[in-house]
Design a protein around this nucleic acid. Structure first.
Length: 436
RNA sequence: GUGACUGUAGCUCAGCUGGUUAGAGCGCUGGACUGUGACUCCGGAGGCCGCGGGUUCAAAUCCCGUCAGUCACCCCA
């Protein structure tokens, strides 16, 4: 025991849990493709400079959460802490924006050096999308609606979409100033953290959890009061379009953003089921990012969704998908039968989509049947001395507990065909479980 | 990075104020049932009591450190 363990905040995923993740990843990918998004994969690590410039020097991610190392060439590299900057880098590197608007989705790990907690890990996984080239509110709505489809599709209770606008280069500085003016006279009443925030980023005081800040935050001016005409119009259209397609939301002026690149629309899907990390999906518009990384001025909007948080919500909501009941377990009894079963197993696996397993350790029938049952196999093929002599196999329905004898001695092809026909003829597990 | 709680068999957990061979349930495995998976009964394997140090005649138990988990803060997906 206590040999080498997985590093803090990381986890292994193995059956049956890995099947849940596969299913989830397949599902979100399918939804993204239905919206016309194509998958992008980027390296696990990038030049540190990319994140410093893309995410923002003064953000927590860059200041204290990056896994940074120096490679053998003396270059500073960083494990991807978020997806947006790498995606933009790839787009610029391959000049994809000159092909017009781009719709991309991703699924994969991110790394942040943080103390682990419910729904927070050092290696986490995110699904997300990025939509480049559309400045209008339709793109915001498309992105939000995609996230909404994913979450609503799971019918999760208690998920609420919070929506806000944090303005642009014109109105955000104005808002900062307004907040500063509001809090500065009462500086002494703020929590220690917020006194620091006041100088660096007064917006952050708004989402503080400390009670002494709350009272002052209640009376603070709202972003929405100081949006410039363009931003206000954009926000109004986003809301109108969300209404038009029936996506429910709540205006929440307290949503701010930890990353520097956001402009205008920001949103979060929040669940009461996640403990302190209540956000399962967060995103927004980032019209300045592409240009700040050296590309042509290009509007963009997207979101990131936490896979672990989504899995946690599914678990707590009791929405675990039932394991699929399928496959054939070959049960060979004795050395001769075991050897004789190999060609049949191989033939069944080739060109078939039915999982075929076999126990080569020579456990007794009862145990092998039990294991096959627990592994959710649908049927079993039993070959013992009698069957070997007679050139047959016993084909057993593991759900109905009934069995037939199949001849397999004429030719391998015929045997395979006969087994496939038998398997295909088994009643669907759903129908069976209702009958039983 | 800060704080609190926790670490005993594959899993879930008992082990009172330190005392001799560390337990249970589930799982695994053998048998009752010479080749059929529920249930029942009887047996078996499986533990550096997270790791390191200290106190003591004696430590799973007390103390310190460390690693890990959980929860919260900071912050965020």
């Amino acid at each position: 025991m206590s040999k080498i363990a997985a590093p803090r905040g990381t986890a292994d995923t193995y059956p049956p849990e890995s099947a849940r993740r596969q299913a989830l990843e397949a599902r979100v990918g399918a939804i993204a493709r239905r919206f016309g998004y194509g998958e992008i994969r980027t390296p696990l690590f990038e030049s540190t400079e990319l994140f410093v410039r893309g995410v923002g020097e003064a953000t927590d991610i860059v200041e204290k959460e990056m896994y940074t190392f120096v490679d053998k060439g003396g270059r500073s590299m960083t494990l991807r802490p978020e997806w947006t900057a790498p995606v933009v880098r790839a787009l610029l590197e391959h000049n994809l924006l000159s092909n017009g608007p781009q719709r991309l989705y991703y699924v994969g790990p991110i790394f942040r050096y943080e103390r682990p907690q419910a729904g927070r890990y050092r290696q986490a996984h995110q699904f997300g999308i990025e939509c480049f080239g559309f400045a209008g509110p339709e793109a915001d709505v498309e992105v939000i609606s995609l996230a909404d489809d994913v979450l609503r599709g799971y019918d999760l209770p208690g998920v609420v979409l919070h929506l806000n606008s944090i303005g642009d280069d014109v109105c955000r500085p104005r808002y900062r100033q307004a907040l500063y003016d509001h809090f500065a006279p009462h500086r002494a009443l703020l929590s220690a953290d917020s006194q620091r925030r006041l100088e660096r980023n007064p917006l952050r005081i708004l989402d503080s959890k400390s009670p002494e800040d709350r009272a002052l935050a209640e009376t603070a001016p709202t972003v929405l009061d100081v949006l410039c005409t363009d931003c206000a119009a954009h926000f109004a259209q986003v809301r109108a379009l969300l209404d038009a397609i029936g996506v429910a939301y709540e205006i929440d002026p307290r949503i701010v953003r930890g990353l520097d690149y956001y402009t205008r629309t920001v949103f979060e899907f929040v669940s009461s089921d996640l403990g302190a990390q209540s956000t399962v999906c967060a995103g927004g518009r980032y019209d300045g990012l592409v240009a700040s990384l050296g590309g042509p001025p290009t509007p963009g909007v997207g979101f990131g969704m936490g896979i672990e948080r989504l899995l946690m919500m599914l678990e707590r909501a009791g929405l675990e998908p039932l394991p699929e009941r399928h496959g054939i377990a070959v049960i060979a009894l004795g050395d001769a039968a075991r050897a004789a079963s190999v060609p049949l197993i191989a033939a069944l696996r080739r060109g078939g989509d039915v999982p075929v397993t076999s126990d080569y350790a020579g456990a007794k029938v009862g145990n092998q049947l039990k294991r096959a049952d627990r592994a959710n196999a649908r049927g079993a093929l039993i070959v013992g001395d009698d069957e070997l002599r007679e050139g047959t196999v016993v084909a057993r329905d593991l759900v109905l507990r009934s069995q037939v004898t199949l001849a397999v001695s004429d030719s391998l092809e015929a045997a395979v065909a006969r087994v496939r026909a038998w398997y295909a003829g088994l009643p669907a597990p759903d129908a069976v479980s209702e009958a039983v």
